[in-house]
Amino acid sequence: MKNFITLFIILSTFASCSPKSESKNLTYVKLEIVKTEKDFERLVTEKGPAEGFYQFADSNAVIKRENDSLIIGKNNIKKYYLNLKLQNPTITWSPDAVIVSDAGDMASSYGKYKWTTKDASGKEKTTKGVFHTVWKKQKDGSWKYIWD
Rank of each mutant, 00 (worst) to 15 (best):
G48C: 06
K128Q: 12
W115D: 09
P95G: 12
Q138R: 04
L43T: 07
G111I: 02
G73Q: 05
S94H: 11
V62I: 15
V98P: 02
A103Y: 10
W93Y: 13
K35A: 14
K112N: 15
F8V: 08
D39H: 05
Y110R: 13
F4W: 12
S21G: 00
F56M: 06
D119T: 02
F40T: 01
S94G: 10
T27W: 01
D68K: 07
G48L: 09
K85L: 08
T133C: 14
I99L: 10
I71L: 04
S142K: 03
V29E: 06
D140L: 06
I99V: 11
F14G: 11
K114E: 14
S94C: 03
V44I: 14
S109H: 08
K2E: 14
L26W: 08
K64S: 12
N83Q: 10
Y81P: 00
N88I: 07
K112P: 04
N76L: 09
E32H: 09
S121P: 00
H132L: 15
S23M: 11
N75M: 08
I99T: 10
D102H: 04
N3A: 13
N76C: 07
E66P: 03
S59W: 05
K35G: 05
K125P: 01
K38D: 12
V34I: 15
T13W: 09
A120C: 01
K125F: 12
T116H: 10
K78Y: 01
L86K: 09
I99C: 01
E46T: 06
N75D: 15
T27M: 10
V98D: 05
Y54Q: 00
I71M: 04
A107G: 08
L84P: 09
W147P: 00
K128P: 01
F8A: 15
Y145G: 02
P89N: 11
P49C: 14
L84Q: 12
K79R: 08
L7Q: 09
W135E: 03
I71A: 05
D102V: 02
W135F: 08
K139L: 04
Y28L: 13
E32F: 11
Q87G: 05
E51V: 09
